[in-house]
Amino acid sequence: MATLTLIEEFLNTVDERSFTRHGQIHIGGERLASARALADWLADHGLADAGVEMEQTDLVDAIAFRTTLRQSLAGDVETATAFADYPLQLAPDRPGELRIAARTGRTWLDVIVETVTVAVCREDWRRIKLCAAPDCRWAFHDTSRSGRGRWCDMAVCGNRHKTRAYRERHQQAT
């Protein structure tokens, strides 16, 4: 499952959303709240065997990498910063071919680092975005033709933004 979907789901293991919709308050949270939660998430995504034990250092590294990637998407740091602690190299692949390989010592982290690296090289990374709504910031894969999508869901975040802007314009007019 080494795709943009994996990256998107990894980035969304932290839910920063804090909005109200139809009277329901959405309160975000941290899916990777423990080493056990990390192990479960990895198993659910085929990156580790079910029941594998994770160490606290695994959790710290996963959250640090995710945080740096999210900061990169927000424009707070350069994307290359996310890879500072994860040296990459070319490794043999199929006969006569090479692939980008991470050597973190953890297979699951190698897959995530390599998936992001390949997305950056293919310029697919620019299609992974954080929702422009400040009370959302959900990571999403922008599938719009122009690549200019701003909202994780136009019917929710985009609509709330447009409604807010409409109300502000009409309040200023009166």
Rank of each mutant, 00 (worst) to 15 (best):
W125D: 04
M1W: 02
E9F: 02
C136P: 02
R164N: 13
L59S: 04
S72I: 02
V116C: 08
R148E: 13
L4F: 02
R122V: 10
V116Y: 01
E78Q: 13
E123V: 11
G149S: 11
E123A: 14
D85G: 10
A119N: 05
T115M: 02
T68I: 11
T57M: 14
D15W: 06
V77D: 07
R164T: 14
D142W: 03
T115R: 00
R17A: 10
R137W: 04
M1S: 12
L69W: 05
A132M: 06
D110S: 04
T67D: 14
V120R: 01
H170W: 11
P95D: 08
Q24G: 10
L11D: 01
N159S: 15
C152W: 01
A50V: 08
W125K: 01
L90Y: 14
D93K: 09
E16R: 15
G75K: 06
I128K: 00
L90C: 10
R167D: 04
N12M: 04
G29Q: 07
A132L: 08
V120N: 04
L38R: 01
Q56I: 11
R103W: 10
S146G: 10
C157G: 03
A91N: 08
C152S: 06
E55N: 09
T13N: 07
T163C: 08
L98S: 13
A2K: 14
M54N: 04
A132S: 13
R94F: 12
C136L: 05
R122K: 14
S18R: 15
V14G: 07
W108I: 00
G29E: 05
G149P: 02
W125Q: 03
W125F: 09
R145G: 08
R160E: 06
D135M: 04
Q24N: 13
T174S: 15
L90K: 12
R99I: 09
A155E: 14
C157I: 02
R160P: 02
Q171C: 07
H45Q: 04
I25P: 04
R94C: 09
E97Y: 12
R94L: 12
A39D: 00
W151S: 03
R106Y: 03
G105E: 09
V111I: 11
L11V: 05
L11S: 00
A132N: 08
L11A: 01
D142E: 06
W41H: 02
K129Y: 06
D61A: 15
H141D: 11
P87K: 09
V77L: 10
A84R: 15
R148D: 12
M54C: 14
T67Q: 10
A165E: 11
T81R: 15
